[in-house]
């Protein structure tokens, strides 16, 4: 059970699942196209290409899973960097103080919260955009993001939201970029 839940939390598992799903869809679609074209002509060739690509992808995913269980792959740059870091440390200079390859991650629960809320706000922006227009939707999005995700005071969010929404809407109108102005206002008018 614990192994299963650990697997469900691993990004590798989800990424490989995504790749496998894409591969299976391609494989199925390829076979369908070949059958529909009765195995000949350009449509069948399209089917062969898609099906083969799906098959190759499935094989590559299997190889990648097998590789992950045996060793941690390193890029050329990482291998050279390890040698340089080892040299620096041998010379008595602390590299860690100056350089980290990755910033420490935020706690998983906090990360999940931030991602979920950002996703929800993006969807809300998309839904509201055609109705209330670019300037207002953006102002609301930024204000909500700054208050909820970045945890600033509400008035900071309000001022920043209005400023950013207004500035971007103004910038786009100057450059001549057409953005939705909001169907709701036309309906009310």
């Amino acid at each position: 059970m614990t192994r299963l839940s650990a697997l469900a939390r691993s990004p590798e598992m989800w990424a490989y699942a995504l790749l496998s799903a894409a591969a299976l869809i391609a494989l199925a679609n390829g076979l369908l196209l070949i059958v529909q074209a009765a195995g000949s002509g350009p449509e069948s060739a399209a089917g062969w290409f898609v099906g083969l690509a799906g098959f190759v992808l499935l094989g590559l995913v299997a190889l990648a899973v097998r590789q992950d269980r045996r060793f941690v792959a390193e890029s050329v740059v990482t291998s050279i960097a390890q040698v340089i870091v080892a040299e620096e440390e041998a010379a008595g200079r602390d590299v860690g103080e100056r350089f980290q390859t990755e910033l420490p991650p935020v706690p998983p629960r906090e990360a999940a919260r931030a991602l979920l809320i950002t996703g929800a706000f993006v969807v809300a922006w998309m839904v509201l955009l055609p109705w209330i227009g670019f300037g207002l939707a953006t102002a609301l999005f930024c204000a909500a993001y700054i208050v909820v995700v970045a945890k600033r005071k509400w008035w900071v969010g309000a001022i920043a939201g209005v400023a950013i929404g207004g500035a971007l809407a103004l910038l786009f109108s100057i450059v001549g970029v057409l953005v939705p102005t909001g169907a709701l206002w036309y309906l009310i008018a």
Binding site: A23, F49, V50, L57, L60, L63, A64, Q67, A73, V76
Partner: peptide
């Protein structure tokens, strides 16, 4: 060159091809 693992790199390239078609 870019990825540590050729297998993973190729898998991503094939995924890119699939998306493009």
């Amino acid at each position: 060159l870019v990825a540590g693992s050729l297998v993973k790199g190729l898998a991503m390239a094939v995924l890119g091809i699939l998306l493009s078609i």
